[in-house]
Amino acid sequence: MIIERHEIEKLATLSRISIDEKTITDVTERLSSVLDLVDQLQTANTDSVQGISRPFQVSQRLRADDITESNHRDEFQAIAPATDNGLFIVPKMID
């Protein structure tokens, strides 16, 4: 399956990944080959196989609703780029 250049550009924008002019052709080719592999997998006959989304037949473990976490704000904020009065500081957001 051929993936178009503009699709790569859109994905890059959505993912906030910068792909420069030199590598975009390479990325396009490599992603196309991944999709080729998917196409190949889809040719396998799976009529008698039930679909699963996970390799294991186990379900999600659930946790009791008890508070066990305490306040570690100072430690977390010590490694943050910018904080102010307990808030994490980011460039101004405009809706």
Partner: peptide
Amino acid sequence: KSVHEGNLPYGSSGVDL
């Protein structure tokens, strides 16, 4: 929650998680 008002450094927003 994003905080846009109050005593914040110029050109910034605050985030309370």
